[in-house]
Design a binder for these strands. Structure first.
Lengths: 225, 225
DNA sequence: CGACAATTTGAAGCTTCTCAATTCATGTGG
DNA sequence: CCACATGAATTGAGAAGCTTCAAATTGTCG
């Protein structure tokens, strides 16, 4: 629990609160509380009552659907400046997903009533929130499209090409197991596909680092088998 | 293109606009235009620029992801009083999905700028919109959960039990092909699963009508194979 | 009644998963 | 600093589940 000044400084750097009138941002910041979450710790779990939303100050958070069998389906990742937990909050229903820290992270938590109050005052804020939710819905729809209409190798090719690239070099942002789940694959299948692409000379893999030798060929993989 | 009076009457019956201050609702209604869509006609298609949102006055609309192979993945259905197309509108990007009428339908279309103006005036409206989007996200997450973590028969059992029931009788709300796509199945697989459940005495099927003889047994199917 | 679409049924095949074992990293404590 | 322990990633073999294709049947609407 650090001081509130800190909270405002954190919010100032987020796209959603950064554009706000300063006085109003400060007002929201005063209601927010800072939250430290150690790696692997849960921010909330499915079934918890949703009391507010979270802003990532530092670190990374993973949202996933738990499953009795110990599997899980990874849905989304959130980094600094990003917002999560709102959908549960707006619904006023318990969370459907787990939120887990992928690294030691610092979050700001803002309670539901404070958000509602801020929305009343700030039409700009609700515009941002709506846009943000819409963007996330879009991402979910893309995921549904991928799982339902594309093959495993298509999904992988698409994922690799979308990662930020430095020259020909890319990286898996998280462990391969987690990326596999995000792509709707078993870790074994991901491993085999990477091996195939390597053998074909399209890429080479060293740990989480991937070098893309033939981006054009990869792009073709996206479309047809 | 019928008169605007009509539009207001239509909006008055929707959960989202019905609770609004009457004067404000009328103001929105005046900006909306009525739209007749014949069965099988598209309201919009993937790639179209998103100019506004749609309210269903009567009929039913299906949102789906098209696929080059002629397949499609059905995402959602919308009936009277429901709202669709907002996510594309808020994103200010072309639609990712097709919107097609399942029957002759009447819609109200409201342009983006008019919605934005209404949101400025009405914090209540933005609350509704946010809640609505959150609900839809939840539904998508449930779909993702179903496709990734559940078997075909589990998904079907879950679907059957969720349909509105009259005694032991349920109905497929749309053609089996469409329901199959919604469940992430091929029509053939759906047909076979229904046959299995019938043979096992859990249900009986006559066209779109389904009688559930053993709801408890179905409920078990939901959980384990 | 006749044509067209929707559904059912059968057979075959393929993609992906599961299980199990091995190798490879990662980090810890002596 | 190294040995060890723990978890991640790879690899192999086998199987399961679902899809695809094709044909027959049923249903529907003009």
């Amino acid at each position: 629990m650090t001081c509130k000044l800190n909270v405002d400084a954190l919010l100032a750097h987020t796209p959603i609160f950064g554009d706000l009138n300063v006085a109003r941002r400060v007002r929201i910041a005063q209601t927010g509380r800072e939250l430290q979450v150690a790696k692997h710790r849960f921010v909330f779990r499915r079934g918890d009552t949703a009391g507010g939303l979270y802003v990532v100050a530092s670190g990374h958070i993973k949202l996933s659907i738990p499953s009795p069998g110990g599997n899980e389906k990874v849905l989304e990742f959130f980094g600094p400046g990003q917002l999560f937990g709102e959908s549960g909050m707006f619904l006023e229903r318990p969370y459907m997903v787990d939120a887990q820290a992928l690294e030691d992270s610092v979050l700001v938590c803002i309670a539901r009533d404070d958000i509602y109050a801020a929305l009343e005052r700030d039409p700009v804020l609700s515009r941002y929130m709506l846009m943000n939710l819409a963007r996330r819905m879009d991402a979910l729809v893309e995921d549904i499209e991928a799982v339902n209409l594309q093959s495993a190798s298509q999904r992988l090719a698409c994922f690799l090409l979308r990662q930020p690239r430095d020259g020909a070099c890319t990286r898996f942002p998280y462990s391969k197991g987690i990326v596999a789940s995000k792509l709707g694959l078993s870790p074994e299948t991901l491993s085999r596909l990477l091996h195939q692409l390597s053998s074909a000379g399209l890429i080479s893999v060293h740990g989480r680092m991937v070098t893309i030798h033939q981006p054009e060929a990869l792009r073709l993989q996206q479309v047809a088998s």
